[in-house]
């Protein structure tokens, strides 16, 4: 039931929206670092399109936050200290090579699809409506990422080697996506989401295992214990550097209009 006047409902909804917005903005930002540097022009076009979608979706969530009484979207995006960010650590890590960025985006997109589907009947209507729209757009991202993953996995040689390395580098961060930093029970209770984190992880594993098989890649096994939880505001130096860059012009004159 939508009880937007219930303090706890609002609190939990806002926390969840920060998680979603921050995930998307940082992923889009990392993706945009690849502009002009992809292996071919087709890749540049695709990656820039995907990055733009992510930033667009992030903007949608920040606008919802603002409607719920949080700061204006630009201040949220460019004026917050690292400890206030609620993204999972997977998306804040610096880019590595092409296989790393593709695989990172794939892992996240699969998680996001499950999260979005679990919100298609969310009790908060503005979120529900936006999610139903965005899920249709995300379809293309996941399709493309899965295609790339399969191609690189089945190619053999350098491509498969690098893919293996990328998976190993990313694996410790995967579990962090499924953390909801303690609000998961209330999210369910308030019907903001329809699945538990465990249910989401199980779905993710099922999809990914099938994909790994198609790509001739071996499953790495259990996720290691999470060292830091981005959703609790525990972040890396990489995020601090990113935020300095991202906020550079905005913070040069915070009261100015750009």
């Amino acid at each position: 039931m939508n009880n937007i006047n219930d303090l706890r409902y609002r609190e939990v909804l806002i926390e969840c929206l920060y998680q979603m917005a921050d995930d998307k903005l940082l992923l889009g930002h990392r993706d945009s670092e690849w502009l002009g540097c992809c292996p071919d022009i087709e890749g540049d076009v695709a990656f820039s399109s995907i990055a733009q979608d992510e930033v667009g979706h992030a903007t949608f969530y920040y606008q919802l936050l603002h409607q719920l009484g949080e700061d204006d979207p630009d201040r949220l995006a460019f004026g917050r200290d690292a400890s206030k960010w609620r993204n999972c650590m997977l998306v804040e890590r610096e880019n590595d090579d092409w296989t790393y960025s593709i695989t990172r985006h794939l892992f996240f997109d699969q998680f996001d699809q499950i999260r979005l589907q679990a919100m298609c009947t969310s009790s908060y209507e503005p979120l529900q409506h936006g999610v139903k729209k965005m899920i249709r757009e995300e379809y293309y991202h996941l399709l493309h990422m899965k295609t790339w993953f399969k191609q690189l996995g089945r190619a053999g040689g350098v491509a498969t080697q690098k893919l293996q390395q990328a998976i190993e580098k990313l694996w410790p961060d995967v579990n962090g996506m499924f953390s909801f930093a303690g609000i998961e029970e209330d999210l369910l209770r308030f019907e903001l989401i329809q699945l538990t984190p465990t249910e989401m992880r199980v779905k993710w594993e099922a999809e990914m295992k099938a994909l790994f098989q198609q790509a001739n890649m071996s499953w790495p096994g259990e996720f290691p214990q999470l060292k830091h939880d981005g959703r609790k505001g525990e972040h890396s130096a990489a995020l601090k550097t990113l935020l300095l860059t991202m906020g550079e012009v905005y913070q040069s004159e915070p009261s100015a209009k750009w």
Binding site: L35, V45, S48, V55, A58, T59, T245, M246, V249, W258
Partner: peptide
């Protein structure tokens, strides 16, 4: 793109680069 000072500008400049590549 990484330093655009508002979400609207960030989107617009990303769209421009995408356009050029396309």
């Amino acid at each position: 793109v990484p330093r655009a000072p508002s979400l609207r500008r960030k989107l617009a400049i990303m769209a421009k680069v995408q356009d050029e590549m396309g």
